[in-house]
Design a protein around this nucleic acid. Structure first.
Length: 494
RNA sequence: GUCCCCAUCGUCUAGCCUGGUCCAGGACACCGGCCUUUCACGCCGGCAGCAGGGGUUCAAAUCCCCUUGGGGACGCCA
């Protein structure tokens, strides 16, 4: 029982990696990490019409971004079709399978009839008992045939113990003789998958709950092939806020892993969020480091009910599940600066306001500034938008605070240049000194300091809110701040 | 229609296996307060849930049954 743990993630490359697939990959990876086992990446590309090269590289890129590293592969299922066919032949030879000459049309007709009568359709086994002569005759006549597995006719059931769902039982009589090889000779997923898992010596199959219903069929294949049956762990599905299965077609980009990369998520924060969708520890811990998560993870902690991924659209702050955002915020605020620095750098490069000096002579300033503003941001992209004024001279001014904090007070037209002069006159530009200047000026002119403070904030950062004004002034610097104050006068002209 | 699975705050969940410590705990979101001449962080507080009905039991969120609701699967897709 203490055999080597080998798990696999086996996506079909028909699009980008979406959160359902990502979660499956993460659980497999965690289990491998936890047990010292191996994770195998297998691309199930037997559906040649829908599989694309682009999708394969996209999936691998997303996995890498998440930090899900695999130990073997990628293997390609399409390379092993011969092997699957040999397995089918073996099943035929051993009497576990038979050739079925029923045509698609015949079957569709029977299915249609069943639908009309509101009864369930199950293949009736028409070809199961053909005589040798019949079969030989039909084969000779080149009538195409599929290969079906013989499901035991006797009373009884397939029973297995799912690590998550417990004992699962399915009666033989509820399982039809299912097709394992198409009439064009191409094996079906249900066969290929079992054969591949055997070859890859997979010890645990960890997959979505939608695979649960197939499991009894696959166990029948394993047994007929005399192969060891792996352990199974099915995990609940992730549904959308309308409780529908998440799909690329319906939800588009917002369920794609790369969407979160593009929207400024810290990859580990996203992993942390996703792992909590259907799994938890008994102390309901929320935040895990990589090491803590691997230590805490267990398949038994996976729960059995589906969870909802709360996608919100058209909400500027919560453009996705609020919990995902909040976990990202947590990391954004609490991680050591050098951990998040590369992500911010990438973001500033993307928005074309990156300056190599930020990691050179201005490095300390850069880190201090990031530290100053990060507590009010949600994702890395905010540094290139909301934080633009700190890193670039070219920044937008929000019209609302412009009106409220600047234009409303006509006298600022006069006061800004005076304040600019006084700022420049400060020898040692510190929080204490800037504060002194602003407060003294307010007193001298008989105005509320708030007017000067809020006006200055908007003039210097373009925004209504932000850090304390004196912190801002230090971060922006004496000359830049003075320049911006003088330039702000032009808002009154328009 | 048939089969399989599931059911605790709006959402993610703890508790359920091994009934009593649960007038149900945490997190997110939301609301209020403190801090702050802005906003956020932080801190403090609040709102909100055992789907319904039967049973078993001295005692049920926990065990059993039914109903309802939800999901999945019923392909020569993966």
């Amino acid at each position: 029982m203490n055999k080597e743990v080998r798990v696999r993630f086996a996506p079909s490359p028909t699009g980008y990696l979406h959160i359902g697939g990502a979660r499956t990959a993460i659980y497999n990876w965690l289990f491998a990490q936890k047990t010292g086992g191996k994770l195998i990446l297998r691309i199930e590309d037997t559906d040649l019409e829908r599989s694309t090269e682009e999708s394969i590289s996209g999936i691998m890129e997303s996995l890498k971004w998440l930090g899900v590293v695999w130990d073997e592969g990628p293997y390609f299922q399409s390379h092993f079709i011969k092997e699957h066919q040999i397995a089918a032949q073996k099943l035929l030879d051993s009497g576990h399978a038979y050739k079925c000459f029923c045509t698609k049309e015949e079957l569709e007709h029977k299915r249609e009839k069943a639908r009309k009568n509101k009864t369930s359709f199950k293949y009736d086994g028409a070809c199961r008992n053909l005589t040798f002569e019949d079969i030989a005759k039909k084969v000779k006549a080149q009538i195409p045939y599929t290969i079906r597995l013989k499901v035991p006719l006797k009373q009884g059931s397939v029973v297995f113990k799912d690590i998550v769902y417990g004992a699962i039982e399915r009666k033989y009589e509820d399982i039809e003789d299912f097709v394992i090889v198409r009439s064009n000779g191409r094996p079906l997923y249900i066969l290929s998958n079992a054969v591949d898992d055997t070859r890859d010596r997979i010890s645990h199959v960890i997959r979505g709950q939608d695979g649960l219903i197939n499991t009894p069929k696959q166990i029948l294949i394993y047994k007929a092939l005399d192969s060891p049956v792996p352990e199974f762990a099915h995990m609940p599905l992730t549904l959308d806020s309308k409780k529908a299965k998440i799909s690329k077609r319906k939800h588009g980009e917002s369920v794609a892993v790369h969407f979160y990369k593009d929207h400024g998520f810290f990859p580990w924060a996203f992993v942390n969020f996703m792992v909590l969708l259907g799994w938890s520890t008994s102390d309901s811990r929320q935040i895990f480091s990589r090491e803590e998560l691997i230590e805490a993870f267990s398949l038994e902690g996976i729960n059995r009910s589906n969870s909802i991924f709360n996608i919100r659209k058209d909400d500027p702050k919560f453009f996705t599940d609020p919990k995902a955002i909040s976990i990202n915020e947590h990391y954004l605020r609490n991680l050591p600066l050098e951990k998040i620095e590369p992500y911010i750098k990438e973001e500033l490069k993307k928005t074309k306001i990156w300056n190599p000096a930020f990691e050179g002579e201005k490095h300390n300033w850069f880190l201090d500034t990031v530290d100053l503003i990060r507590s009010r941001y949600h994702v890395f992209t905010d540094f290139g938008t909301l934080g633009r004024a700190y890193f670039s001279e070219d920044y937008p001014v929000d019209p609302k605070p412009l009106k409220k904090n600047i234009l409303k007070h006509e006298e600022l037209k006069v006061w800004f240049p005076i304040l600019a002069d006084r700022m420049e006159a400060i020898e040692v530009f510190t929080i204490e000194e800037t504060e002194k200047v602003i407060r003294n000026m307010a007193e001298e002119f008989g105005i509320k300091a708030g007017i000067l403070i809020n006006g200055t904030r908007t003039a210097v950062t373009g925004q209504a809110a932000g850090p304390g004004i004196f912190d801002i002034l230090i971060a922006i610097g004496k000359n830049r701040a003075a320049d911006r104050l003088r330039r702000a006068v032009k808002y009154f002209a328009a």
